[in-house]
Amino acid sequence: MARFRLQGTRVLAVDLTGDSVKAKNGAMVAYDGEMTFKKMTGGGEGLRGLVTRRITGEHMAVMEVKGQGTCYFADRATEINLVRLTGEKLYVEASNLLATDAGLRTGTTFTGLRGASQGNGLFTTTVEGTGQAAVMSDGPAIVLRVSAATPLTVDPGAYIAHTGELRQQLQHSVGWRTMIGEGSGESFQIRFEGEGLVYVQPSERTTIGGQL
């Protein structure tokens, strides 16, 4: 199986021994050994996946990298975080996903209003199976555990990914004061309940809700 490791915090090195890995198109910065790069149309879930991704806006340009040696990936000097999956599901924005083990299945799910409030659309990408995935963040991600006794509330702009059995719920407190410019600046929040891990970045994307 491909072995993912970090070279510093902003470069992902993947050791390949004849197997393959899926990565964001154009994210390869260097390689050592023999590699072939094959563009996968539509994110690599066949025709149905391709259509779904087009419709939902969660399309990613993905390539399949196969070969012997070490391949290095990086994207705009963003921080890279490794996530090891053992059967569970990782929910991540397509724009934050750098590479996944070839054995992992990717898909698209509906997120509801949370997506809209983050400016990321109504859908998110899921990664499922056993293997490793590399997730990008602006600044090193902080992993926060959610349990039944300790629900977590996150700013939509700082959220990047989560795993586990989590229910998410958009909280908002938009009142007439928001309209006259006296909002609290934290009007939109996502509350996570259940059991799982949430990845947040120390930075906020500009969101529609962000200024409220």
Partner: peptide, 10 residues
């Protein structure tokens, strides 16, 4: 706090 600097809370 300055607005929008909170990223998460328990």
């Amino acid at each position: 706090l300055q607005k929008g600097k909170m990223i998460a809370y328990y």
